[in-house]
């Protein structure tokens, strides 16, 4: 993985053959605030990348822009198709197509999990599969396999409110994994957890990359979380300042 400023981008040229996602010169403003300024980022298969920076530095905006949640004012986000069958420029897609893209290619884990409180744990995990057109039985079976893998066997019928914070986050990880996504995006996934639970959730999150060709992107304030990632991107005032 490499993360560069605009001027540094050409120096990453040697790695362009196998990148999974390439973000080029992304800029985004909210009113008078320049949240993102010519940010470039490449993601490679199997890598875990931490994005760090103070509040308001643009790290969440960068994650949202490369995940197709928001559209950048300038720049490109290019994603390689599976089996190297071509490239897709996410920034040129309509809102509806970006939704479809997120559903098919990405998984998400957020600070509060952003799970659906009305649904049971297994329904939350099965939801992306149902949206993709899977049958109920198949979707629920896969959801329960996911719960089992994450040590939550037997909790499938529970509502989100009946789970602990750590359990809910592991449900969110299972949901993110259920469609076998190309990239998993996590925004402060351990932010609301105690240190022990945070460690467990981080273990589960990093394990999603074990033996898989997917990338993991984690936005975090926590240096300990960043230390366990393969690479750290540091942001300030909407710009990528440094990488490790």
């Amino acid at each position: 993985m490499s993360a560069t400023t605009d001027s540094q981008h050409s120096r990453a040229g040697a790695q362009t053959l196998d990148w999974l996602l390439r973000a080029e010169n992304l800029s985004k403003a909210f009113g008078q605030t320049q949240a993102l300024s010519k940010a470039c980022l490449d993601l490679y298969p199997g890598e875990a990348v931490a994005i760090m920076g103070p509040s308001g530095s643009g790290k969440s905006t960068l994650l949202h822009a490369i995940a197709g949640i928001i559209s950048a004012d300038e720049g490109k986000v290019i994603l390689r198709r599976p089996d190297d069958e071509g490239l897709d420029d996410i920034t040129t897609l309509s809102e509806a197509k970006r939704s479809a893209f997120r559903l098919h290619r990405f998984g998400f884990v957020f600070q509060q999990g952003m799970l659906i409180p009305e649904l049971t744990a297994e329904e939350n995990i099965a939801l992306p599969l149902l949206l993709l057109g899977s049958g109920r039985t198949e979707a629920v079976q896969q959801a329960n396999s996911g719960l089992e893998r994450l040590g939550l066997a037997g909790l499938g019928e529970r509502r989100i409110g009946q789970l602990s914070g750590g359990q809910a986050q592991r449900v969110a990880i299972a949901r993110a994994l259920v469609t076998d996504p190309t990239i998993i995006f996590a925004d402060e996934p351990t932010g609301s957890l105690d240190s022990r639970t945070a460690e467990e959730v981080l273990d589960a999150l990093l394990a999603t990359n074990d033996g898989a060709d997917r990338a993991l992107v984690i936005v975090t304030h926590d240096e300990q979380v960043a230390a366990r990632c393969d690479r750290t991107v540091r942001m300030l005032d909407g710009r990528i300042e440094a990488t490790r």
Binding site: H104, I116, L131
Partner: peptide, 10 residues
């Protein structure tokens, strides 16, 4: 917003 993020169409 959560449903939109995971890719549920509007």
């Amino acid at each position: 917003i959560a449903l939109d993020r995971i890719g549920m169409p509007a």
